[in-house]
Simulated scan of single mutants.
Amino acid sequence: MTLPADQNHSLPQLLLLPGFMLDQTLWDDMRDGLVQLGQLNFGDLGQDDSINAMATRVLQQAPPRFVLIGFSMGGYVAQAIMQQAPERVLALALLNTSARQQDAREIAGNRVQLELARQVPFKGLTSRALASSLHPDRAHDRVLLDRLQAMALRNGKEVFIRQLSALRSDGFSELQNIRCPALIVASSNDQLSSVAEAQQMAAQIPAASMVLIEDCGHMTPLEKPQQLLQILSDWLAAVNAVNAPAAPVRQA
């Protein structure tokens, strides 16, 4: 967890969770705007090989109460946090994620990758994996691809093995227990988390709203950072307005 010392301590704590083989630099293009919304904390998802263990570690290092923002795999961890300590979460944003269980084909594919990863030096993610995370029109954007690969290489082989080992269970039935304000963000051209899954999540969470970002792939913080920042800003403003204490009644 990192928390810049010069931030305004009257702002809420924001706890941001990255996706698979990503790190806190995922948020770099939004950081200047995010610090206007809250005090930034970044969860570490690289030390554990299960979603629940990741959630437990994040909670051990997190502020007492926080706004929780989970991207992709971080969204699964955010849902586990909601099961472990819902009273600590002021509001929840789930970005380009799902509550869907991995199917047999995905699990088998992961096992093949794990066996290979244990036998050879780690050279980062494949070109195909990197390209599939972006809008098709940006699948050859060298700047974005290099940024994604740099994050993967910083995480390294052991994090790759741990995160790939973390199975994702079906969490749709648990979503109805989320009582805090919630935001679901999906992208029209996301090849990894579908719009239909996002809509299903929004339908299950009682106090959820959903926003669809057009012409964007999976990596919204990199592909559409300012639009995503505006969505989060508008949502938090609405949450704060609802939670603001009522003004005292003035006597005539």
Rank of each mutant, 00 (worst) to 15 (best):
112 V>D: 11
129 A>Y: 11
243 N>S: 12
133 S>E: 05
20 F>M: 08
132 S>L: 13
240 N>L: 12
217 G>R: 05
94 L>D: 03
202 A>F: 06
215 D>R: 01
146 D>E: 13
132 S>H: 12
132 S>G: 08
63 P>C: 06
107 I>V: 15
244 A>W: 06
39 Q>F: 02
238 A>W: 13
117 A>F: 09
31 R>N: 11
228 L>T: 01
8 N>R: 00
153 L>T: 12
167 L>S: 09
239 V>R: 01
252 A>K: 00
251 Q>P: 10
250 R>C: 09
15 L>Y: 03
136 P>D: 01
57 R>T: 15
200 Q>F: 06
156 G>F: 09
11 L>F: 05
58 V>D: 07
192 L>A: 12
144 L>Y: 02
223 E>I: 14
34 L>N: 06
59 L>P: 13
101 Q>L: 07
93 A>W: 08
229 L>M: 07
45 L>K: 01
8 N>W: 03
223 E>P: 07
172 F>N: 00
158 E>H: 07
79 Q>A: 00
147 R>P: 15
170 D>H: 02
73 M>Y: 08
8 N>H: 04
50 S>T: 12
141 D>A: 04
184 I>E: 09
77 V>R: 00
189 N>M: 10
179 R>V: 13
128 R>N: 10
194 S>L: 05
111 R>E: 15
104 A>K: 04
45 L>S: 06
123 K>F: 14
237 A>F: 13
100 R>K: 12
172 F>Q: 00
127 S>D: 15
143 V>H: 14
25 T>N: 14
152 A>N: 06
105 R>I: 15
224 K>Q: 15
156 G>L: 08
183 L>V: 06
99 A>M: 04
61 Q>N: 14
2 T>H: 11
60 Q>C: 14
114 L>P: 15
41 N>D: 05
75 G>D: 09
165 S>Q: 12
44 D>M: 03
216 C>H: 07
220 T>I: 15
135 H>W: 02
228 L>F: 09
58 V>E: 06
249 V>C: 00
91 A>M: 12
54 M>A: 05
117 A>K: 02
127 S>R: 05
147 R>Q: 15
136 P>N: 02
122 F>N: 03
41 N>S: 05
34 L>A: 09
47 Q>N: 12
43 G>V: 01
14 L>F: 06
107 I>M: 08
115 E>P: 10
28 D>N: 09
207 A>V: 03
91 A>I: 14
2 T>G: 11
160 F>G: 04
149 Q>K: 04
46 G>H: 07
98 S>R: 00
108 A>M: 09
119 Q>N: 08
125 L>N: 04
60 Q>F: 11
87 E>I: 13
194 S>Q: 06
171 G>T: 00
203 A>Y: 05
190 D>Q: 03
40 L>D: 01
15 L>C: 06
164 L>R: 10
125 L>Q: 10
62 A>L: 04
49 D>G: 08
221 P>T: 01
43 G>K: 01
90 L>F: 15
171 G>H: 03
96 N>Q: 09
215 D>E: 11
107 I>G: 13
173 S>K: 02
245 P>R: 00
